[in-house]
Amino acid sequence: MELPGLYNYWVVVFLMMAGFYVVISQGNLVKKLVGLGLFQASVFILYITVGKVSGGAAPIAVEGITSYSNPLPHVLILTAIVVGVATTAVGLALVVRIYEAYGSVEEDEIHAQDLVEDDISEDPPFTESEVGKQ
């Protein structure tokens, strides 16, 4: 590779920040999960970049090859990807349940509904005490 050696890290940082931006700025919960996915994939790229040895072959032993890329990051990321899809699925399941409970997947609307419910639930003790007086 003739590119500067740090180029991959900069791509990783850019993608990571893109994912981070989506997570903190967007109100839609599904989109937040996509942002988390972007962030996650950038970490994967970081690990694989670290494991690369220039001139090395893929870590499968073949006669006559002496230099291999580091297999350890590959193992870590391999399992992390599958764990990642499982945790994303848990997130999606939560989003589906939130939608069923609130009728929305927008953070602001959900928050507004929560506030309204809090106002309602603060009222009853008041009326109960009035009932008690009577």
Binding site: F44, I48, G51, S69, H74, L78, I81
Partner: peptide, 21 residues
């Protein structure tokens, strides 16, 4: 991303990313 992993010698990871992601 999977293609990039392939380029960086991580064949097993590229496999998984393509199937999962």
């Amino acid at each position: 991303t999977a293609a990039l992993f392939m380029n960086l010698d991580a064949v097993d990871v590229a496999f998984t990313e393509a199937a999962v992601g």
